[in-house]
Design a binder for these strands. Structure first.
Lengths: 151, 151
DNA sequence: GGCATGTATCTCGCTCAGCGAGAGAATACG
DNA sequence: CGTATTCTCTCGCTGAGCGAGATACATGCC
């Protein structure tokens, strides 16, 4: 067992953090009768709604790595749960707009609310300059992963 | 749209990073005929092997949130792929030890190898003190999520 | 206009990951 | 000992997601 250098320790921390967040999400999803995919879709839809972007089944499926058949099933599921609503795009009638219902927003807050508050509270132990470093670091790491994903 | 304060920006970065890592893992898994669960199991098994810990189907299932039936299926799958081997525990013959094969180690290196190298390289742009801050930050955030998960 | 090509979504049939229930085998404990 | 407990596996089932293809609308070209 070699002495662990800081870089490797950081890599393991990053991985461990994603595992924890994944499990947290999976447990929340199960508790609310959702599947992990449903929760990821919900997050994507809420982000888009906040940014004012229109999401179609095609875009959603692409973001989650599903094919069109799987996406239709996912959208059916979310609609049946009363989390979203389908609406034909009047400009291009082949398209369908996915609109989030109030219930989805509440669910999202239930999921994130407590956790975000705890995370922000824990950040209080760090100074502004330290948070700026953390931010630069996370941005750099995210960039590396995104670049690796694009091959 | 309120001006984004640093803490919220950091929360979104953390989430975005996990999404990127998840997708990276899912794509790697699909390319190698694995399911996301298989890859997570593999990571857990390799970590345990490096730490010298014995993993049984029970422990593995618990770590991944599967029940016993699903775990048996998972272990069957990994065994069929030649990634692990079952072996009865001689001390307690109810238990089964899961032993990783060379092939699993190679696959793990194929998955992590390139990405880790890139991540470590990107860390080169940070000073030792900055890396120490990043490390403290990640440890704090991981602790918060783990605590939230334990309710 | 009329026709070919492209795009967005959905339907159908299927595979297989994971669940619930419970069986079987080994161990611990009164 | 016998009974409770622990660990793994089998069986039958549900349903998420895939491949193939149908359908509807849009757009470009003659």
């Amino acid at each position: 067992m070699e002495p662990e250098r800081t870089p490797m320790r950081l890599v393991h921390l990053l991985r461990g953090l994603t595992v924890e967040l994944d499990l947290f999400g999976a447990e929340f999803a199960a508790r609310n009768g959702l599947h992990p995919t449903d929760l990821r879709a919900l997050i994507h839809l809420l982000d888009a709604a906040r940014a004012g972007t229109v999401v179609t089944p095609g875009r959603l499926g692409e973001a989650l790595g599903l094919n069109s058949a799987g996406t239709t099933g996912l959208v059916d599921r979310l609609e049946r749960l009363g989390l979203i609503r389908r609406e034909r795009d009047p400009g291009d009638r082949r398209k369908v707009r996915l609109l989030v219902e109030q219930r989805a927003i509440e669910l999202g807050e239930g999921f994130f609310g407590g956790l975000i508050a705890d995370l922000v509270a824990a950040m209080g132990a760090f100074g502004d300059e330290e948070l700026a470093v953390a931010r630069r670091f996370l941005e750099a790491m995210t960039g590396v992963v995104a670049a690796a994903r694009a091959e």
